[in-house]
Amino acid sequence: MAESARRDLPTLTNSAERLLAGLDLSRERLVVRRPGKRHIIHLDELTYRCASAWLS
């Protein structure tokens, strides 16, 4: 793969940062934004508790 193409690929850190930016624990949901779209994922109780404990 060409070096310039490698630089354009998202890294795990960038992906995690984007997901964390969309995490809304007060509403128990994750908002995933993509160009021109927005997906809302409602967190179940276990996922909510794990995310909450991980961030505290």
Rank of each mutant, 00 (worst) to 15 (best):
L20M: 13
K37T: 03
W54I: 06
E28Y: 08
S52N: 14
R38L: 05
E17R: 15
L43H: 00
A16F: 08
C50M: 10
L30Q: 00
K37F: 04
Y48M: 09
W54K: 12
W54D: 05
R6E: 08
L46M: 10
L30S: 00
L43G: 00
L23A: 01
R7D: 15
R27P: 01
R33N: 15
E17H: 14
R29L: 02
R34I: 09
D8W: 03
G22I: 01
P10D: 01
L55K: 03
L46R: 09
L55D: 02
T47Q: 07
E17V: 13
D24H: 07
H39R: 14
L9W: 14
P35M: 08
C50T: 11
L43F: 01
S52L: 12
S15E: 09
L12G: 12
L25I: 02
T11K: 06
L25D: 05
L46I: 12
H42V: 13
V31S: 02
S4H: 14
L20Y: 13
L9F: 08
K37H: 04
G36H: 04
R33H: 15
D8V: 07
D24M: 09
R38H: 09
A51V: 05
L9S: 12
V32K: 02
R29I: 02
P35S: 13
H39G: 10
E28F: 03
D44N: 08
A2D: 10
I40P: 01
S26M: 15
R34F: 12
A2G: 10
A5K: 09
D44T: 03
L46E: 05
R27W: 07
R34L: 13
S15R: 07
P10C: 01
